[in-house]
Write a protein that binds this DNA or RNA. Structure first.
Lengths: 331, 331
DNA sequence: TTGTACGCGTTATCAC
DNA sequence: GTGATAACGCGTACAA
């Protein structure tokens, strides 16, 4: 393989093989109207010159990048990594490549991400980021970019959505707890962690209001370490409670802080992880959790995306119901 | 925002504003040689028409996509997600976007990934995937794509590398353990999990050979659940040992299996996680672990990448030394 | 300061 | 079956 020479173009292949651009292009795209002999020859010079087509030029000519944009707040959460995993799997199977756009929970970045998604000319965009609102989605969509939105219910001509069934299930869990449970329930409110958590918090509050029970809302940080420290302090004065935590790591911060404060789980302190991952069952004590298989979500999202691109998506809305997996951290 | 109309091009902006392509192009690229007045006018019609430049056409014209390819075996590991997080952060700051190429530990996929990285015309590629060997890297590099390789030592004109210092440290840990430790050491061998683990395994073996100690190599699966089951069986016959595990989840499989088998940690069973993440300190008992901050690695990799792109990378090789963080799972 | 014309690497529509 | 040639949307010398 020769170093330090410019990339060879289709034009050079044409000249070197003695055929025209058109013919070379035909063999590249495996079209039929070309003699077996010329095909062989052209392929030979392609190999000899080490020619690789430019996806850029192809995309410009065909108006198709085989590229799908993924909008997420961060790649750093386990459940998002799981989803990413599912998406890359079916994307690869269907010949697409994924481009990452991360907003980092910032509205400012979200704005620039919207711009970039449009300018980058991706064939479609999968959005799992509450920082983008309906208007942002519509804006992207208005630029002929098909969209699949995760954790949202908006649909349209070229926009489909996947949403999560949490509220109903969580109300069920809470009201069931009222029957035999003896502890006050606390909801761990994490600032700016999205509409899903907001909806769940609302369901939490409603459940208590409906049964005229008192409850607590605890503001906490989105990091394990800080939340752990906060609960070490918290447990100095309060010695029991049932805590609903957003993610496994937040839930583990509570159980660990409880244990390290000499409290028992689930005797004194009960904890439920709302977005459970495999770590919920790996933690000790094992975390009771709600669960949606995010890899499946990612796969479904990409399936919907490719269907959208092929013009054949009938069900533009799909719902994943959460499971309740009672384990050790609750009674 | 109008729906269902074709994307407006620079040509239409030119016509609508009464200026030429060139002028419009200049205001888009914020060049100086344009009157404030015409700038205003052009920007007005750009806004009015909702024009967005095509990154594709720009890339074709300038020979610069602002796009960096990331090659990884999977997005599903925590330490890779951490690295991704670091990379997206500096990429965004420097105006780049990341596109993902995943090999899924398959040589076949690795081959097609090499092709795709080349054809996709990314400005550069960061590779953290042992499925790609030196020849693959050289091939990519020969197509004028600057490369930063993580977990490798190869360097070249346009290829830099980041490598990890594990072997020395692990030998130190092992030999130190020989002084007071009383258990036989086992290395958990995971099939096809890369050269880093292979090197560490080699260091493990060498340490024992040098001191004429016996050791064990245990083949295990790369999943928590399977490894947990395997160790439940294992601990029926064997009741103690010092286990070196690749990742936190594998290490947790061992500690959990030990505990659930009635063994004590670290009394009967000691465990060291080689690639520790934050989960090592969240697990109970807390895992002793080796640690490299993968977010920092990702940031450094992107820094090196952008330096490479700007032609000014002096240090083409960088080494991250691992830390040893003794916690509860070892004495 | 502004406009003209060409190039970037392909695909696709024609002819032949 | 094969070959000119015009798009695709933009950047940029060069000229005006």
């Amino acid at each position: 393989m020769n170093n330090m020479k410019d990339r060879v173009t289709i034009y050079e292949v044409a000249k070197a093989s003695g055929y025209s651009l058109a013919t070379v292009s035909r063999v590249i795209n495996k079209q039929s109207n070309v003699t077996e002999e010329t095909r062989k020859k052209v392929e030979a010079t392609i190999a000899r010159l080490g020619y690789k087509p430019s996806a850029l030029a192809q995309a410009l000519a065909t108006n198709k990048t085989t590229n799908i944009g993924i909008v997420i707040p961060s790649a750093n959460y386990v459940y998002i990594a799981n989803m990413l995993n599912g998406m890359t799997e079916v994307a690869k199977a269907k010949g697409y490549v994924l481009t990452l756009f991360v907003t980092n929970h910032s509205r400012e970045d979200a704005l620039s991400v919207v711009e970039k998604v449009i300018t980058s000319h991706v064939d479609g965009a999968v959005i799992f980021d509450d920082e983008l609102d309906v208007e942002d989605i519509n804006k992207i969509s208005s630029y002929q970019v098909p969209v699949v939105v995760v954790n949202n219910t908006i649909v349209g001509d070229k926009v489909a959505s996947i949403n999560f069934g949490y509220e109903h299930k969580i109300k069920e869990i809470i009201k069931n707890y009222f029957k035999s449970g003896d502890k006050k329930m606390y909801f761990l409110h994490v600032h700016n962690s999205g509409r899903l958590l907001e909806r769940i918090e609302k369901a939490f509050i409603e459940s208590h209001l409906e049964e005229k029970r008192s409850y607590g809302i605890l503001s906490c940080d989105d990091s394990y370490r800080q939340t752990y420290q906060d609960f070490i302090s918290f447990f100095k004065n309060t010695h029991q409670g049932y805590f609903l935590a957003y993610r496994d790591s937040i839930a583990m911060a509570v159980t660990n802080a409880a244990l390290d404060s000499g409290l028992s789980v689930p005797g004194d302190v009960e904890v439920l992880s709302i977005i459970g991952t495999k770590y919920a069952s790996m933690a000790r004590p094992q975390l009771s959790a709600m669960h949606i298989d995010m890899k499946q979500v990612g796969m479904k999202a990409m399936d919907m995306m490719t269907d959208l691109l092929n013009g054949g998506l009938d069900e533009k809305s799909f719902k994943f119901e959460s499971n309740y997996l009672p384990r050790v951290s609750t009674k």
